[in-house]
């Protein structure tokens, strides 16, 4: 059913630990994962299992201690890929207006002013932020800021977009809206996305494949193909048997890990 894809990201036996001696924490261990061009991978796992650590390595902000990370077959350091990165907390520059924030990645690439304005405005309008372009981040709501963040990570059309729980802090309704917008944009841009969330339903809703990670040291517990056709009707997807089956199966896997990560709560 799914078209075979060229591998864009390859993780082979990737491990990363922090600190040394008694204080050493192995954040992730022996990760093996291949992400195809245009694929949307969602990652769930208990808090502290190394999801952000994984994303930071993909963003090339951090390097694995062991194992290999390749983009289009080339080692991460030499690979010519552009990456968009949406952080867990909102990170619009408070000294720039929304528009200037979204133009930022184009500005540092030397895109002429008129063109970058046009591209930024078009995307802002797509996520319902037209009319707010001259607002400063502090004058926007949390949900608007997060949309701004996402738009800023998309505007330079990166090969890969990394998102670290981008909707984590939003209320349920806003979340649903943003999920819908994200799905539309991804469908149109055919961007490769690695999306971290603590919300299993969101993971199934948005992903082509869902990765469940184990408790720390994080490794991959299981990977499931979602196999629900796109475009997905996010309002009614919950009623589909396939969706319900996945929720049950993945939750069983995830629950064990969540309990392992927090034994105090289990007893």
């Amino acid at each position: 059913m799914s078209i075979p894809r060229e591998p864009l990201i390859e993780l082979v036996g990737v491990s990363r630990s922090f600190g040394r001696g008694a204080g050493r924490v192995v954040a992730v261990r022996d990760l093996d994962l291949t992400v195809g061009e245009g694929e949307i991978i969602t990652v769930v796992g208990p808090s502290g299992c190394g999801k952000s650590t994984l994303l930071n390595m993909l963003a090339r902000l951090d390097e694995p201690d062991a194992g290999e990370l390749r983009f289009r077959g080339r080692p991460a350091a030499e690979a010519d890929v552009e990456i968009g990165y949406v952080t867990q907390s909102d990170s619009l520059f408070p000294w720039r207006t929304l528009l200037a924030n979204v133009e930022y990645p184009l500005e540092i690439r030397g895109v002429p002013k008129a063109e970058r304005r046009e591209r930024a405005m078009a995307l802002l309008a797509r996520v319902g932020l037209a009319g707010f372009e001259n607002h400063l981040p502090r004058q926007l709501s949390g949900g608007m800021r997060q949309r701004g963040n996402i738009v800023r990570a998309l505007v330079y059309e990166p090969d890969i977009v990394l998102m670290d729980e981008p909707f984590g802090a939003l209320d349920a309704q806003t979340r649903l809206l943003q999920q819908r917008q994200l799905q539309d944009i991804c469908a149109e841009e055919r961007t490769t996305v690695v999306f971290i969330t603590h919300d299993l339903q969101e993971a199934i809703l948005l992903g082509d494949r869902v990765v469940v990670m184990t408790a720390r040291p994080g490794s991959i517990k299981l990977v499931r193909e979602v196999g629900i056709d796109r475009p997905r009707d996010l309002d009614h997807i919950h009623e589909q048997p396939r969706f319900q089956h996945l929720v049950t199966e993945l939750w069983d896997a995830l629950r064990d890990e969540v309990l392992r990560a927090a034994p105090a709560v289990a007893s």
Partner: peptide, 13 residues
């Protein structure tokens, strides 16, 4: 704030 430095780095600055 390290977050600003990180996003700017990833954006290619």
């Amino acid at each position: 704030d390290a977050t600003y430095l990180r996003v700017a780095t990833v954006m290619g600055a």
